[in-house]
Design a protein around this nucleic acid. Structure first.
Lengths: 193, 193
DNA sequence: CTCTAACGCTACGCTACGTAGCGTTGTTCC
DNA sequence: GGAACAACGCTACGTAGCGTAGCGTTAGAG
């Protein structure tokens, strides 16, 4: 990263970094404008000149540091492709950045702008990519013609978010393949755990 | 409801009611100990003598007023039973009490006690009941022997929570039957919308 | 080297938290 | 009926964080 040249950009970068560090160190609840100001060395008034809310800052920081997992390999089968993608998402959400992301998802319940930002940058992209995979499976004849890709994809990723955010159950290593097998495989011949 | 006899119980009931009214009127963010004190006429100090946190109060109020939807009819088929139950949950979550419940689910991310309370009173009961239905379907031969009821049930309800809490997509009237058909029906012959 | 946009600093009023101290009142029990 | 006490109400406090106003200071473009 080349250091920002203008004074403004230096301040903005310092703010994003302080917000991110605070988020990872002490959680979203500890991220306050005052704490960011203190940690970054940027005056509170200056922060307010650049961002309207704390969440906007954190979303900016996230954009720089948290890449959406969209890329799909092509393993040759729908089940394989989806398992691989789910596995990647599970891994990502288990990192400290992933947990930070999840806390923003939670926070977005009260912040429509944040919700829009997260949906556009992360959720929609991944959903669209997953839907394409399912539809490819339908074209190949691996899945029946009556398949509704959107509904199935929401069920797959919904299960992840549900267990992480709502019911707080862990996601075992086998979860991705188990989930795909149960939801998509007509014969439900996948292994159990 | 018989009016509470002791002075203490009167105060407690007034607090629960004020918290609930505030929640429905102005959302969880507006529910503060100070606001509850003002609205209920109960002194702030007295409130702190009975509850440790705002969330504990709201959870108490919820317990009195929001009944978990556990009852399943027996329609004769797994698909029918699950569709009916999902439909009931969707309806419940669409009420103002349901939205209040959802905001508590969100809040529980930061409050382990609240999370435990919600899981025990609502999520676990419904999950167990749904799992029983699926297992009944396996016994009847409607679903194959390799079915993992827990995984499937989390996928079904996960889809609901995912769309309501995370991606903020609406749940159309046909959603319950569509979801069940897609996730459980091997032939995916259910209707589309 | 000047000029101006952008920053830093201090201070303010507001809301909410959670606690301490003390006066007041409802209830119970004789 | 009256005493005793448990529980409530009230006031006040210190803390944190919000968002804004006013004004001094400085970086950096031209």
């Amino acid at each position: 990263m080349t250091p920002p040249s203008t004074r403004s950009e230096r301040a903005r970068a310092a703010v994003r970094e302080a917000a991110w560090d605070l988020l990872l160190d002490r959680g979203l609840r500890a991220v306050t404008i005052e704490a960011i100001a203190e940690r970054s060395g940027v005056a509170k008034t200056t922060i307010y000149r650049h961002w309207p809310t704390k969440n906007a800052i954190v979303l900016d920081a996230l954009r720089e540091r948290f890449e959406p997992t969209v890329a799909f390999g092509d393993t040759g089968s729908v089940l394989g492709d989806l398992t691989q993608q789910l596995q990647a998402v599970i891994g990502l959400l288990a990192t400290e950045a992933g947990v930070a992301y999840l806390s923003l998802v939670v926070e977005s319940w009260y912040d429509p702008d944040l919700a829009t930002g997260l949906v556009e940058r992360y959720l929609d992209r991944r959903r669209t990519a997953a839907i394409e995979v399912v539809e490819r499976g339908v074209e190949r004849g691996e899945l029946s013609a009556g398949t509704d890709a959107g509904v199935l994809v929401d069920a797959l990723y919904g299960a992840l978010y549900y267990r992480l955010l709502v019911s707080r159950q862990p996601l075992p290593d086998t979860y991705a393949s188990l989930l795909v097998a149960q939801v998509l495989d007509h014969d439900r011949s996948g292994s159990r755990d």
